[in-house]
Nucleic acid binder design. Sequence first.
DNA 1: ACGGGCGGGACGACCCGTTTTT
DNA 2: AAAAACGGGTCGTCCCGCCCGT
Lengths: 221, 221, 221, 221
Amino acid sequence: MQGDNPLTSPSKPATTRRGRPPSVAADDIVRAATELISERGLRGTTVAAVAERLGITDGGLFHYFPTKGALIDAVIERAVEHQVSRLRAFIAPGGLAAIEALGEWGTVNEETPELVALQILLSAEAILPETPVRMNQVQRYAGVHDIAAGLIREGIERGEVRPDVDADWEASALIAYLDGIRLQWFYSDRSLPLGLYVRRYFDTVIDRIRVPSPNAADPDA
Amino acid sequence: MQGDNPLTSPSKPATTRRGRPPSVAADDIVRAATELISERGLRGTTVAAVAERLGITDGGLFHYFPTKGALIDAVIERAVEHQVSRLRAFIAPGGLAAIEALGEWGTVNEETPELVALQILLSAEAILPETPVRMNQVQRYAGVHDIAAGLIREGIERGEVRPDVDADWEASALIAYLDGIRLQWFYSDRSLPLGLYVRRYFDTVIDRIRVPSPNAADPDA
Amino acid sequence: MQGDNPLTSPSKPATTRRGRPPSVAADDIVRAATELISERGLRGTTVAAVAERLGITDGGLFHYFPTKGALIDAVIERAVEHQVSRLRAFIAPGGLAAIEALGEWGTVNEETPELVALQILLSAEAILPETPVRMNQVQRYAGVHDIAAGLIREGIERGEVRPDVDADWEASALIAYLDGIRLQWFYSDRSLPLGLYVRRYFDTVIDRIRVPSPNAADPDA
Amino acid sequence: MQGDNPLTSPSKPATTRRGRPPSVAADDIVRAATELISERGLRGTTVAAVAERLGITDGGLFHYFPTKGALIDAVIERAVEHQVSRLRAFIAPGGLAAIEALGEWGTVNEETPELVALQILLSAEAILPETPVRMNQVQRYAGVHDIAAGLIREGIERGEVRPDVDADWEASALIAYLDGIRLQWFYSDRSLPLGLYVRRYFDTVIDRIRVPSPNAADPDA
DNA sequence: ACGGGCGGGACGACCCGTTTTT
DNA sequence: AAAAACGGGTCGTCCCGCCCGT
């Protein structure tokens, strides 16, 4: 869907590779699997379907991922890596500035709907007590929560955020909104302006938690 | 997943209470199915497992629900009815009072975790383009959205809510938060105080959208 | 192969059986599986082949034996039961008389070649360290060994067998011969006179271990 | 199991040492395959597992043995050669002396348990009517039988063995015991003193079939 | 009407032996 | 010699009908 990424593929041709050149790369498989999962769900996606989309057989796919679980693990890992790398750039400034930057998160998500869909499916699957993806998702949520709460606390320390703000609760609310609005994005066939909505939501939150600027505090003056 | 759902349902409303109320056994089946689905997911739940939990065979279950799709339809219908009946009581006052009352929605949900889990699973399933539950969920969301937005507009008309408030956006944000926070509730093994969090969130929203009371408008005085 | 055994099938029609009469009984399945295993080996026998021989599908077979392992367990159990019931009659007299009676074991085996083949295959499979049938077979061998050694010891106590005979070694040798000669029976396409050979072998053993009769001890007299 | 064994083998005697000795690698493969087969059985051993144990890929193995059947043929051939070379030394003296020497056969076997295990597995596999190893094994048995019976007949001609001894039956019994006691060896985790037991068995047989020495003939004198 | 034993297809995941390509 | 891919096949088992008893 995103074409052949010219950055990753030829990055390692120098190694003395012997044998038949692959008609598909492992990355292609993971990408195809991600797409199919975002279309049919985890259980609705068969390894044969993934192979078929790539023009190979499931036997051939076996060389890359010996089991469906391994394939799904790779799919999840790739999605997480993608998200983390993007996230890191946003939160670099730290404090309230980072929170403001996170307001663009919706715009970023608009570019990769299949990863967002995957995330939603995994989120729901993770509520089941026995599912293997549960721990993964719970930890991911905890990580994101800690990042957000940490930024807010940093804002308090810097004097940008009001000291009486409950950082944990605000982080929880921010994540909840992001998780929920993405559902609506798909319900509207992605016609809902996700970037705009998220931006707007962040603005209201920032308005509420920031320390009032001196001249804005007394508009009547 | 639900077979030729749109074909059989209207032709043979087997589970529709028409002529006489459903037998007790049918309700037991639906309840057991709801529990199992909330534990193992839609696809992870087999009709045989439902039957086994009830002490009957899948052949016996076949008399009540000729197909798995029909059973799932009944499960969804029961969940929706349950939700709607509760909701109706909350929004009876109308306007801002109804919005305030909705702040107790989290507390209500705490009593029926299996219905909440079912709702989450259906929400996620509904983002898939081909799934039979999609339309159902999208319409449900539209209905809830209209109710919430309607209450806000009513609040504006009554002078309780500031006239510049975007009713549709606020409704969307409210629903998004509710959808998202429920996920966190399950991630925390339901130890997160769902009722408290929702109540608190509603308070901040109401604070933001309500028309300021005269004496609170000038705190400096 | 042995037709419908009129003894076992109608033995339990008195129970209030409901539903469709089975086209095949569990016993038929076990019998068919035994035959196929004796023709193609354990791993060479597929559940589909067993079902096909019975005229049903593997899905139908699933109602009786949910897994191949369960089917094989039943096959083994039936073979053991068959063997044990026969064996009991032979060893009833006890002592040397029982040993003599066991000389007819070969003749008995000639009637059920498929059970003998099954036994051979299991014997060989059991030498593998990881196989699930190993323990089963080892215990079976120990049981048979104890029975044979016990009979010999009984013969010693009764004064029928020479007191210097090593009961354990003799038992081991007897079983070894029986196991080995059955192989040759199959190598000869069962044309080797198994009953005769075994009878003859037992005679030489009995000749060697029995207490000499007084008048036979001195034929010249 | 061995594919079109009779077709490929004669057309391409890849493993036959004709013109030059086999490469070391081929011998390693055969040895590794022998070990694996003795651990997991014929069908339980995959070519990939053999290759993995050697640190190569199954594709690499393909250069030495174009098919699994060819590999198994080589494994059998090596085992037979090993056995035959040992056997030849034992039977060199001929007559009863050779029989006595064969009493050490158990001791010899104790040194190569994996070859014994292979032999047991092949023995059992050979009772199946359709297996490609059947003819091989049957012929091997016939050969061993002829050797043993020939030695006994030679003993009779030399006046070492009583003339009324049935050479064929005695040979059959000897082989049967050897085949059977090896099973017990494995059942006991090879703790059974195989060499001792076989030695002892041969002694009883020789006692029975040899021409009585003049002074031993009249113990009363 | 309710329920149960039984059987039918179908398909998914796994994996295996083999061939093709470089 | 390695790597990639194929085609086949086994096992599990799932959803669903066909009949029959109560």
